[in-house]
Computed example of a mutant assay.
Amino acid sequence: MEEEMRSAKWLAPVALITSSGAIAQSTPQDRSPDLNAAAADAQRQLRQTFTNLEFEDFGPAPLKGPLYQASAGGRILYYAPESEHIIFGAVYDSSGVNITALSQDQSARKRLSSLDKESALAIGPAGARQVVEFTDPDCPYCRALDRFWNSRAAAGKMVRRLIYFVTGIHPGAAAKAEHILCSKDPETAFRAIYSGHQPDQLLTCPDGAARLAKHGSAVKSVGLTGTPTLIIGEKIISGFAQGEIETQLEGISRKTQALGPPGP
């Protein structure tokens, strides 16, 4: 939550509420006849529209005025300027479609198209499914993610990782990332660093520094707040969420099979 609050400071000094906190009980002095009638109509419509859900409490929310959608740190949020509230949550339509997720996917597509893929460190066969990965050499979850990719590769489930280094979180990350990019065999150097090996001397070079600067630009363009962060297909996955990663990869695989092999 601290990351969320820092990423939203530009909006205004606001009070945060969660998606579950958006439905609140009204106080006795708020319960005028008109309000009671409007609330009864709204509650009836809610139950008729979302018939698969059971609702317990119902009443006015603290929000006032229009609600706007914004993006911060790769996440969609909603802002009510009149009451100065931010909502971090998901919006669903009457068909059960997650509108927030669709907006996040659309945002991911825009960001992915702006990435300089030539500057990325590519690990994995060229013909394998592509995954964009933002990582930090000193991030323990990033190292766990690397072990996960290695275990999938050992099982014959290869991906091609386009790696961008995030260097603004841990003080030693930039030097280790530049060492990897300057090595004669960057993939071997990457695996050594991520397995915990500490070289006696870290390499530096103009090309590595230049590529690392481009990685910094990519991090800003995507609006990252933490590592690891993945873009798989058109979806952004924050953190080492193994189940979500596997589900997304399987979903892409099913789509590929349904489409059939590429034409000549």
Rank of each mutant, 00 (worst) to 15 (best):
H85C: 04
Y141R: 01
S238W: 11
T229P: 06
L202N: 05
I99P: 00
Y92F: 11
Q248F: 04
Q248H: 10
S119L: 06
H197Y: 13
C205G: 15
D57E: 08
G96Q: 02
T27S: 13
H179A: 02
A175M: 00
A218F: 06
G96L: 09
T51E: 12
R152F: 01
C142V: 04
P206R: 04
T18E: 09
D116Y: 05
V222E: 02
L145M: 13
G156Y: 06
V222R: 01
E234I: 11
Q106D: 14
E2A: 13
F58K: 03
L77V: 13
R161L: 13
A37E: 14
S95Y: 02
K157S: 14
A42V: 09
I87G: 01
A80C: 06
P81F: 15
Y194V: 00
I245E: 04
Y194W: 09
H197M: 14
G156P: 04
I252V: 12
P137K: 03
D200K: 08
V91D: 01
A153T: 10
Q48K: 15
Q106R: 14
A8C: 13
R147C: 04
F165D: 00
R160E: 04
A154G: 10
P264T: 14
A42H: 11
N36P: 00
A61K: 03
L212G: 01
L53Y: 09
I252A: 05
G223V: 08
R47C: 10
